[in-house]
Amino acid sequence: MKLATVRTTSGTAAVRVDGDTAVETGHHDVGALLRQESWREAAATATGRTHRTADLDHAPVVPQPGKIICVGLNYRNHILEMGRELPLYPTLFAKYPEALVGAYDDIVLPAVSEAVDWEAELALVVGTEVRHADRETAAAAIAGYSVLNDVTARDWQYRSPMWLQGKTFEATTPFGPYLVTPDEADAPAGLTISGAVDGETVQRADTADLVFDPAALVSYVSTILTLRPGDVIATGTPGGVGHAREPRRYLAEGQVLTTSIEGIGELHNTCRAEKTAAARG
């Protein structure tokens, strides 16, 4: 099953996507749908207002997650690229909902940064409340998968040993367009993930290269705190980031960032310079 949150004339709506048609489920977004205990049945049997898929205006697939937990250094090739050893435990940091934009929205390049980088990522969305989950329970708690790009201000990320300040600038993180349930997208078995800048492929890998796979991450994070429906875990990025290149490369005004994962979906986002109060006038 494929779900999305779309913008309509009356606000946002959760929809089930059936080929060329999207059917409203009666919930204002996918997060609200997932908080319903019988969300799978509700989504599968929905008969609400319909839209042409081609006309959809996508909001972030979960616009207001209670938690966005991100994982750093989780692809073997990216870890080696950054000159590090394979970790014993996941490297975790947070992101906030204000950072999220829709699948085709503009990315806002922060005016204070000169080193904005790309990070194509597989995101998982939690569908069941879990705490201290074993691997089997953790896998069953995953509602589905989506595409995310953890666009990062490297010069702010490395201002201190703590990464958060470079990771959660407002309107920098595209997320969507769909949530695809695990029966249709087997991420642990391996899906091709790629990122491109102005059509040039800069990242390409297989999700089977993850050091800590989705079930392991849900189990680990649920040991720390309760995960609830709609919470998001961004599972990390593969090699090919601009900061690790020689010379280093960063995103610029007008460039188009494309992020895709086989069987899940694709993001297309144009980079726009932030309009500060001084610039406005």
Results as ranks from 00 to 15, higher is better:
113 S>C: 04
168 T>G: 08
167 K>E: 00
98 E>L: 11
99 A>P: 02
140 A>R: 14
137 T>F: 05
130 V>Q: 03
173 T>C: 15
87 P>K: 09
119 E>R: 02
92 L>N: 07
73 L>F: 10
166 G>V: 10
106 D>R: 13
105 D>F: 15
59 A>R: 11
134 D>T: 10
167 K>H: 03
115 A>D: 05
171 A>D: 12
73 L>I: 07
175 F>N: 12
76 R>L: 14
140 A>S: 14
130 V>H: 08
63 P>F: 09
72 G>K: 12
65 P>Y: 01
141 A>P: 12
61 V>P: 02
103 A>Q: 09
123 A>P: 05
101 V>W: 00
95 K>M: 06
126 V>I: 15
172 T>G: 12
149 N>R: 04
92 L>K: 11
116 V>P: 10
166 G>N: 02
74 N>W: 01
152 T>P: 05
64 Q>K: 08
159 R>M: 11
101 V>M: 12
87 P>A: 08
155 D>R: 13
120 A>Q: 00
138 A>G: 01
67 K>N: 04
76 R>C: 14
125 V>S: 06
168 T>Y: 12
117 D>N: 07
164 L>P: 09
59 A>D: 08
164 L>A: 11
161 P>H: 08
85 E>I: 00
63 P>V: 02
143 A>L: 10
139 A>N: 02
105 D>E: 15
91 T>R: 04
162 M>H: 14
71 V>K: 07
103 A>W: 03
157 Q>H: 08
119 E>I: 03
124 L>G: 09
110 P>R: 01
59 A>I: 07
83 G>V: 05
101 V>K: 11
75 Y>E: 05
96 Y>F: 14
109 L>H: 10
85 E>M: 03
146 S>M: 01
156 W>T: 00
78 H>R: 07
68 I>E: 02
108 V>F: 02
63 P>R: 02
81 E>M: 06
90 P>M: 06
76 R>Y: 05
138 A>Y: 06
80 L>S: 08
80 L>V: 14
151 V>T: 13
80 L>Q: 08
88 L>V: 00
151 V>E: 07
160 S>N: 09
